[in-house]
Design a protein around this nucleic acid. Structure first.
Lengths: 339, 339
DNA sequence: ATGAAAGCGCTAACAC
DNA sequence: GTGTTAGCGCTTTCAT
């Protein structure tokens, strides 16, 4: 079932079939109709591999994530796929599972499939791994990774917007002891979140007590442990901000086990706004990084790079604002509410 | 950067390069080494499209799901990808989003990419859509969809095992009024779960009160609504089984809002064991359908079909047992515990 | 407006 | 054991 069979049956050349299928305007409507009829009749679908081979364009974008099971990613993948589909692109998703070997494999897969661009949404990718991609002028877009590198686009997350709102929300609720559980501080993104927290506190004349800043690891268990440490401190916080939602959920689990009632005894705020946050009880107040926007933005960035004729020399910088999502895990400081 | 360049630089024929890369044993080690050196040096990666085209084998399996954002799927996709990778296969994931148009698109994409097999994990696929696939003898594997069709493999879910355990668990905890919130009863799988519940009840001499069986729709909101209806019944249940975890989480949210304490006042059991279930508070007791096993099984089924020389005439039947996962959302019937 | 034919990068059948 | 070469299914000049 190939283009020659169609051509023969429609009594035209393969070129005409090709033009018809690709909606080239130069084909006579009469002929086009005849071709389409045969195409339908035989249930013919052009081979993407042949197309890619001859045209030199795979129409595939790669998407490298750390783990598809990480609740932050499914929504992104979904939007990325959705957008790709609209533009007749296919996507090749690859998980690194935080494993250097797998990262290498990921890049190899991208290369072997001759992807036209790659969005990298995982951390700790060896710079050298990407050299192969850069060498071939494959457009790259990174999410949330520091300084612009040559020829690589970036989606920077603007932490300030959301974190500031969250801090001010707690302050407005009369909280004075506000704790922060960080992510692994080796991660630029985690470090940035912490620093923005400190900044947001001092902006309103509060000091972020170093004793109330604890390093977590962006997992539920890490949240539990960090919060356990906090419980042993002289001064217990009444409000707590977490570097991501899983950490916040860990805090809430610990509270549940310790009979601390959220939000009555403790206000908890997460970060990311993963789907899960709205299902947890109480629904988690959090700072949103729109996964929808992120997926869409990443795709558009690649598309944009592919469509320019000369390779992008400096890379483009995109910014995604964070925002505050108020749910039910925060309340007025204990003792300060109405009787 | 192609095989001819490598061949020229290594002063061998393209055939030798091809054989080397594919680890054909007939290549002299001395030559092979020379070729590999050049390959590394130039950072050469063979084009999958060219390979697929000439060999007639794409080494791609398709995976059709309803939505990647449905928490049931990420783990499956993960395992499917993992297993595929081990066997040098690529996967093409497509979401139907419950939209007939998208289902058609999904199938088209599979066909255009010449996938060697497709795992279908969504419901409501028009039979006719798959004809195109069957016509081309593409191995198919379905999950949990009734009667075996010719040439299509099936992974059947054995509901009895897990549901029976769940029912007996509640009975052992002295619960007498046990409710069941079903899924949309148009779905075979939802219907089956309900029937198995009724059967499991009567097995132990209890009757499933029709008044305590409510139709939900497998969403959180559906769970809330169904439970609200239940609350207005003369006899409130003390234990409740749900047709999936999201429904159970809906019940728990409603309880939270109504100040009904789970499990003290009500024992709740879910179905599926999605990731979320262990994060909710209290952690949800549920019936597991191993997503890991499902992903692995689906892949193996396809691989098996691809590797046989003659097409599978009847399709193979696989069975996946469900099992009971005890967490903290169930307890002894109110009033029956120790004082 | 349509057709003939070259060729994308690779594998495999055949020849040596 | 290695090389030569045909051809996978398609797009795209170049003729006409």
């Amino acid at each position: 079932m190939n283009i020659r069979k169609i051509a023969k049956r429609a009594r035209v050349s393969t070129a005409t079939v090709s033009r018809t299928i690709n909606r080239h305007p130069s084909v006579q409507p009469r002929l086009a109709k005849r071709v389409w009829r045969i195409v339908e009749e035989l249930g013919y679908f052009p081979s993407t591999q042949a197309r890619a081979l001859v045209s030199g364009r795979s129409r595939i974008f790669g998407l490298i994530v750390s783990e598809i099971t990480n609740p932050f990613f499914p929504e992104i993948v979904h939007v990325f796929e959705e957008t790709a589909l609209q533009h007749n692109y296919e996507i090749l998703v690859s998980s690194t599972v935080h494993d250097p070997e797998r990262m290498k494999t990921s890049v190899r897969r991208m290369l072997e499939h001759r992807v036209e661009g790659v969005a990298v949404m995982t951390f700790g990718m060896e710079e050298s791994l990407l050299d192969d991609l850069k060498l071939r002028n494959v457009p790259l877009v990174f999410v949330d990774v520091g300084p612009a590198r040559p020829r690589v686009s970036n989606i920077r997350i603007d932490y300030l917007h959301g974190i500031r709102q969250a801090v001010q929300h707690l302050a407005a609720m009369r909280h004075e002891k506000i704790a922060f559980i960080t992510g692994p501080l080796g991660l630029k993104s985690a470090l940035a979140r912490k620093e923005v927290f400190v900044q947001s506190m001092s902006e309103i004349g509060m000091t972020a007590d170093p004793e109330l800043i604890i390093e977590g690891n962006h997992t539920l268990e890490g949240g539990e442990e960090a919060f356990a440490k906090l419980l042993s401190r002289r001064l217990r916080p009444t409000g707590i901000l977490c570097s991501n939602d899983m950490t916040a959920i860990g805090v809430m689990r610990k509270c549940y086990n310790e009979k601390i009632v959220v939000p009555r005894d403790l206000s908890v705020i997460g970060f990311d706004n993963i789907h899960l946050s709205q299902y947890i009880l109480p629904p988690l107040t959090t700072i949103e990084v729109s996964q929808t926007e992120l997926g869409r933005l990443a795709f558009q960035a690649l598309l944009h790079d592919v469509q320019r004729e000369t390779p992008n020399p400096k890379g483009t910088e995109y910014v995604l604002k964070t925002s505050f999502v108020l749910r039910d895990s925060t309340a007025i400081k204990p003792g300060k509410g109405r009787p």
